[in-house]
Amino acid sequence: MKKYIFVYLSFALLVTNILSAQIVNGKVWYSISMEDFYKRKAKKGKAPELQRMFRMTADAAKNAQLKLVFENRQSVFQHQKGLSISDVKELDGFVKSLVAKGVYYTNLAKNTQLMQTSYEGKEYNVKSKIEKQDWTLTQEQKQIGKFLCYKAILEKEIAGRNREIIAWYAPEIPVSFGPVDYVGNLPGLILELKLPIATYTASKIELNPKNGVTIDWPTDIETMTKEAYKKEGDKVKEQLNSGW
């Protein structure tokens, strides 16, 4: 009996691998929740004005939708074009910048990511190598849509504090992509990503769409390294702190 069970499981795994190997491109839409962020802030007894601002931020985030498009070893992740998430222009831009600082282009074959963002009214491509992340893979499971996902945990320093990042990835979709810069490290597509600021959850998944997927990397915008971009940001912080 054990022999037959082993043969059955081996066959099932083989079929899954064959089907997974046929996934060459796709599109994923992510919804955003900032409720955990709001609750943490609310517990600290902030002034009513700050509490109201945090509540407005979390409510606006509910209207945000981000899209991941992938093709073989490349992907692009960005806000849904033309989608406004708040009637207040400043709040719209603020919330969008919290959950995605720009448009993220990933090339796993070259181990490279470009973040297309704006600085002082000018657009830049911020180029960086995909960082090796020491994820802990667990056997904990949950269903997201029709896909069985596994939990992975990452300890990471963010803003000087150690934080726990949680990802739920789907081995059935064997591409190492996910929201923002969480790419290239997990054996499956991230369908849910919990960061300190927000949780990204796949609300719609389209695999091997009929019209296919095309990803065009931007080439007509000035490119700087991640280190240079950080230096420019540090300069701005210094100017603001000095009252300039």
Rank of each mutant, 00 (worst) to 15 (best):
A58H: 00
E35C: 03
V126C: 11
N125I: 08
G212H: 08
I205Y: 04
L68N: 00
P174T: 13
L154E: 05
L66C: 04
D36F: 15
D134Y: 06
Y169A: 03
V76R: 01
I5W: 13
E155T: 09
V99N: 00
S84W: 12
A47C: 13
D59Y: 02
I166R: 06
E131M: 15
V236C: 05
Q113F: 07
Y38K: 04
D216C: 12
V15I: 13
K67W: 05
T117Y: 03
I166E: 07
K62H: 12
F70N: 02
E227D: 15
N211I: 09
L137V: 05
Q65A: 02
L137N: 11
D59N: 09
Y8R: 07
D36Q: 13
N63L: 05
Y38C: 00
P171F: 04
K89E: 14
T57S: 00
K3L: 06
A109W: 10
S20R: 14
R73V: 02
P187D: 07
K210S: 06
A12F: 08
M34A: 12
K67Q: 12
K62M: 07
I215H: 02
L195H: 02
N63W: 04
L186D: 04
T16M: 15
R40I: 00
G212S: 12
N25F: 10
L83P: 00
A61I: 01
R163E: 15
Y169K: 06
I144R: 06
W168P: 00
M56C: 08
K44F: 09
V236Q: 03
K129H: 09
A202D: 05
K122I: 07
E227A: 11
W29A: 08
P218K: 00
T219M: 02
S128C: 14
F70E: 01
M1V: 12
E232P: 08
Y150M: 12
Y38L: 09
K156W: 13
V7G: 10
K27G: 06
I18N: 14
T136Y: 14
Q116W: 07
S84H: 11
R52W: 02
D220C: 00
S75K: 09
E157P: 15
K43C: 00
A167P: 09
A60E: 02
E238N: 14
K89I: 14
V88T: 11
G93Q: 07
M224S: 11
K110T: 14
N17L: 11
M34S: 15
N241I: 13
R55F: 11
G93S: 15
K3H: 06
W135Y: 14
T117W: 08
T117F: 10
G45C: 03
E206H: 13
E35D: 14
L91N: 07
T225Q: 04
E222A: 10
A42Y: 00
K62G: 14
Y30V: 15
D134K: 10
V88I: 12
A100Y: 02
K110W: 15
E120T: 04
D220Q: 01
F147D: 08
L191E: 01
M34C: 05
K129P: 01
T136D: 09
S118H: 10
L195S: 04
L68Q: 01
W168H: 01
G45N: 04
V15T: 08
K89R: 12
Q139M: 07
I173Q: 03
Y8A: 09
L50R: 11
N72C: 09
L108G: 03
T214M: 15
I165Q: 04
G102Q: 06
Y182P: 00
L207D: 01
